[in-house]
Nucleic acid binder design. Structure first.
Length: 105
DNA sequence: AAAATGACGGTGT
DNA sequence: TACACCGCCATTT
């Protein structure tokens, strides 16, 4: 993948999300200074080559829904991973109320 | 350079 | 709660 400063920055923040917690695309977008670039952030995840290194599976939609995953068996694998890390699920969605990552304020 | 694409978010009905 | 629409952004063709 071609190097992208913004992508690298997103990955760096993504690495700071602890196991058992999840972040949202919009949240990451905001942290990199592009509050409305959630969509672009999603593209960075899809093109991620650092799967094991970057916990891209800890990123979910703002409503807690798992919108995609490039590795394993897709959403299923992503859900299993999060569940295994201790993330609380509410049906098909993540219980953001308890598992939403809260960046340093 | 312009148009199309996609792992989004918010609002309205 | 479910579905439809619009707005936004970076990457790719």
């Amino acid at each position: 993948m071609k190097p992208s400063p913004l992508r690298d920055q997103v990955y760096e923040i993504l690495r700071s999300i602890p196991a058992g917690k999840v972040g949202t695309y919009g949240q990451l977008a905001r942290l990199v200074g592009r509050p409305k670039a959630a969509r672009a952030i999603g593209m960075f995840m899809s093109t991620n080559s650092d799967a094991p290194r970057t916990p891209c599976h800890r990123v979910v939609a703002a409503n807690g829904r798992l919108t995609g995953y490039s590795a394993g068996n897709g959403i299923s694998t992503k859900k299993e991973l999060l569940l295994k890390e201790g993330v609380i699920f509410k049906g098909e969605k993540v219980d953001l109320k308890q598992s939403l990552w809260q960046p340093s304020i």
